[in-house]
Design a protein around this nucleic acid. Structure first.
Length: 418
RNA sequence: GGGGAGGUGGCUGAGUGGUCGAAAGCGCCCGCCUGCUAAGUGGGUAGGGGGUUUACGCUCCCUCGAGGGUUCGAAUCCCUCCCUUCCCGCCA
């Protein structure tokens, strides 16, 4: 959510930013409602002030002749206030549909083709044979099962078996260990179901409800990412600014309806209704947030490096950035079987956009007025696709898979999946 | 699922119809005092919004879990919901 004050003062700037992001922004409606609301509010408050003063007088004198006047003032202020409230409510609802601005460093672009490759790491391996896809290898080795998953849940679900399941679990533990022991994150475990308020806090609602799964009989959603519970974890709180940044890491399953993705990535372990992820979330202050985005991105990259997976880092352009992000990097791992890069992490800075929605504030120092926090998140990494990248990059000519060194301790010393 | 208790500022916790945005304590801030530390001592210290102001500020309104209601007037009385906690039941 953007501050109303900003929209009032610089409506054109907000409109322009929305346009470059390819988002609609109901700025004119917001401005009209804002003017209406303030006019009615002033009227209501003036009447209320008169009533309060007279009521105070009445409390002392008990002058019964004042009662009708008091009653009338009360009714009038209540009626005006109700009108004002009605506008304010509409205004607040609309504000949830105004997209975030973006940082000046974000490349302006029209499509994903305008994203900028910032750096590439690792050598793409020369196999000396035609590398196979992870789903080909996975089914041959009997460590991935798409058919049976579809039988019990439908398409876009997958199952892992034996060494496949263990490989994913090893990756989870490896990632959690690196982030908690070396990068200063605190491991969390939160509910995987969250209410609508939490979804609004991270801006998954009201605009993107069709991307998530909701329980039919109550106000609960399956988390589309651990970003939702973690970013909202301190929602409504006033944090001690001296204790920022807060760094959380959490493993969770994620559920997404993938509405609108029909036909995309239908094969393999790539785009599923349920996948696993190790998520990094930071809650920080204004001054440090840009820098904290950089370090979070580096933290996620570190996992790819240790696993020896070639990858590249993209600066997302305005058009590819999304409604709530202020600045965003994608990490893409090279998958030689698929002959393409797969997004394994998306690291974003939201500024105070989410914090305003979640009412997440901090006091910079004792006595200072509260400010909205800045929030950052990124995968560290998405498990599903990291499994793919490991399988494809570490495959051998005979169809077996060499286990990357750092994972072996987590697999009881296992060196090869065959 | 059944029954009891409770949700008040950064925290603990008083307050049962007006003079209460709210005692006291802790914490924090500013001063005084004290070789240092600790202690003592005086004062200050909730959040949000509107108007006005270059600004400091001034002023008004709202907020005691959320939303309704009663009343001239609600932290206080009534209703609904949410949450916490205790006892019973069930259970991994």
């Amino acid at each position: 959510m953007l501050p109303l004050e900003l929209i009032r003062k610089e409506p054109d700037r907000v409109k322009r930013a929305a346009e470059l992001k390819g988002e609609e922004a109901p700025i004119d409606e917001v401005l009209a409602l804002d003017a209406d609301w303030r006019r009615l509010l002033t009227e209501a408050e003036e009447t209320k002030a008169e009533q309060n003063a007279l009521s105070k007088h009445f409390a002392q004198t008990k002058e019964q002749a004042l009662v009708p006047k008091l009653k009338e003032l009360g009714e009038r202020s209540k009626a005006r206030m109700a009108e004002a409230e009605e506008r304010k409510q509409k205004l607040d609802e609309l504000l949830l549909f105004v997209p975030n601005l973006f940082h000046e460093s974000v490349p302006v672009g029209k499509s994903e083709a305008d994203n900028v490759v910032l750096r590439e790491w690792g050598e793409k391996r020369d196999f000396g044979f035609e590398p196979r896809t992870h789903y080909d290898l996975g089914e041959t080795l009997d460590i991935m099962d798409f058919e049976r998953a579809a039988r019990i849940a439908g398409s876009r679900f997958a199952g892992l078996k034996g060494a496949g399941a263990r490989l994913e679990r090893a990756l989870v533990q490896f990632m959690l260990d690196v982030h908690t022991r070396e990068h200063g994150y605190t491991e969390m475990q939160t509910p995987f179901l969250v209410n609508s308020d939490a979804m609004v806090g991270t801006a998954n609602l009201p605009k993107f409800g069709d991307q998530a799964f909701r329980l039919a009989d109550r106000d609960l959603w399956l988390v589309p990412t651990a970003e939702v519970p973690l970013t909202n974890w301190h929602g409504g709180e006033l944090l001690d600014g001296r204790r920022l940044p807060i760094r959380y890491v959490m493993y969770s399953p994620c559920w997404r309806s993938e509405a609108g993705a029909a036909g995309k990535d239908t094969r393999g372990f790539i785009r599923l209704h349920q996948f696993s992820k190790v998520e990094l979330v930071k809650i920080t202050d204004e001054g440090s947030s840009l820098q904290e985005l950089e370090s979070l991105t580096t933290n996620a990259e570190e996992i790819l490096r240790r696993l020896g997976l070639p990858y590249r880092v993209l600066a997302m352009c305005t058009a590819d950035m999304g409604f709530a992000q202020y600045k965003k990097y994608d990490l893409e791992a090279w998958c030689p079987g698929l002959q393409r890069y797969l997004e394994v992490s998306s690291c974003s800075l939201f500024n105070d956009f989410q914090a305003r929605r979640a009412n997440l504030r901090y006091r910079p120092e004792p006595g200072a007025p509260p400010r909205f926090a800045h929030t950052i998140n990124g995968s560290g990494l998405a498990l599903t696709r990291t499994v793919d990248a490991v399988i494809e990059n570490y495959q051998e000519a005979d169809g077996s898979i060499t286990v990357p060194e750092p994972l072996r301790p987590y697999l009881g010393g296992l060196e090869r999946i065959a």
